[in-house]
Amino acid sequence: MSLTADEVAKVAKLARLTFESEELEKFAGQLGKIVDFVDQLSEVDTEGVEEMAHPLDVDSVVRPDVVTEGLSRDESLANSPSHDGEHFLVPPVMAR
């Protein structure tokens, strides 16, 4: 299956990745090959097979509703690329 540059661009947008147009074509080619490779699964008959999202059969693990100590504000902001000492700062959503 070959992926068009458009299809790849759509996926890139979902993944919040941008590629220069040359890079995009290269990526489209590589992704196409990988998709071809994984496509071999289509030959497996999986009729009636249950999906396996977890490797083990474990269920219903919960914790009691108890407040535990978290991080201080300084700790939580410490790795932030931009903050005002109280909040994380990000560029505005809409145009400036």
Partner: peptide
């Protein structure tokens, strides 16, 4: 369905 879900099913077969 064709990719992710399919892979989870084959995963079951491998297990």
């Amino acid at each position: 369905d064709a990719y992710y879900k399919k892979a989870l099913k084959v995963r079951r077969l491998i297990a």
